[in-house]
Amino acid sequence: MLPFTYSRPRNIGEAATAGAQPGTEFIAGGTDLLPLLKEGVRRANRLVDINDLPLGGIRHEAAGVRLGALTRMSDAADDERLRRDYPAVVEALLAGASPQLRNLATVGGNLLQHTRCLYFHDAAMPCNKRQPGSGCPAWDGQNRGNAILGGSRACIATHASDLAVALVALEARVVLGARHGEREVPLADFHRLPGDTPQIETVLEPGEVITAIFVPAAPYSRRSTYVKLRDRASFEWALTSAAAALDLAGDTIRQARVAVGGVATKPWRLPKVEEALAGARADRSIFHAAAELAAQGAEPRQFNAFKVELMKRAIVRALADAGSLA
């Protein structure tokens, strides 16, 4: 870890100014950043602690819920209304990290967490995301955890967040703050595909911070769920996950929202699956048929080919679970 200066600004303007300087990292919970700094995966000579910014709190409104970016994962997971109105979000929060990590980590930081690609985390290895132009050893290497969707020859690193998968299914938007005001971006557009520049992961401009996450209240929000598959029963990133939300009229699906995690380079919404479900009957054969569409364009590698099938089955399970919710 390089030595760094430390500052703790009290407003967004100050934070944005400080954060725009090269070599600067914002720190909130620190659960993602500190291990990366310790292992030399990321380098910073300035840390800007944003915990004094007024970005906490959960505000329920008629149109939806606004989660302040600095809301701790544990506090969000504890919120009764969030659990009732957006169950997939709380399930994803509780499936992510350990209780002690959730006490430190923020919901804003969670969206910005880095991939678990084994090569990204070993600073002695080539990795285009860490060291642009150095190559992608995961392509022909230990890629069981890597993406089958959204990858490029330069990078097949999986996006690691559970929360983001649930949020992208529920059409959440992120609010970004900078020196001169705020802008809102659909979460689906917030993360970038790796393409040739896997080191650029989001649309954040230098100095810009996530100030809030807004989840709209939609007819399907309450009937939403998050299914996470992994090797261990707990405390592990997703091998494959699926978030599903259904708006039902009797047996008929008015509209559906589906996203998957652990399989793609960003939180991966599945509009074609959703279209196939809209207007159809909520039964397993329909779910199966719709889930088949999820794998379109999938590009599996040697050790992650099973995710094609596993992803479809996870979607079916999530839809079935959502369908059976009261």
Partner: peptide, 25 residues
């Protein structure tokens, strides 16, 4: 890595931000 066809990967190639003065560390 280079033998395997990977690019220049030495950490030295990565521009390292300048350290702050010792008193600020």
């Amino acid at each position: 890595a280079k033998r395997l066809g990977f690019g220049q990967r030495s950490a030295a190639a990565q521009p390292s931000p300048a350290p702050p003065p010792p008193e600020a560390q």
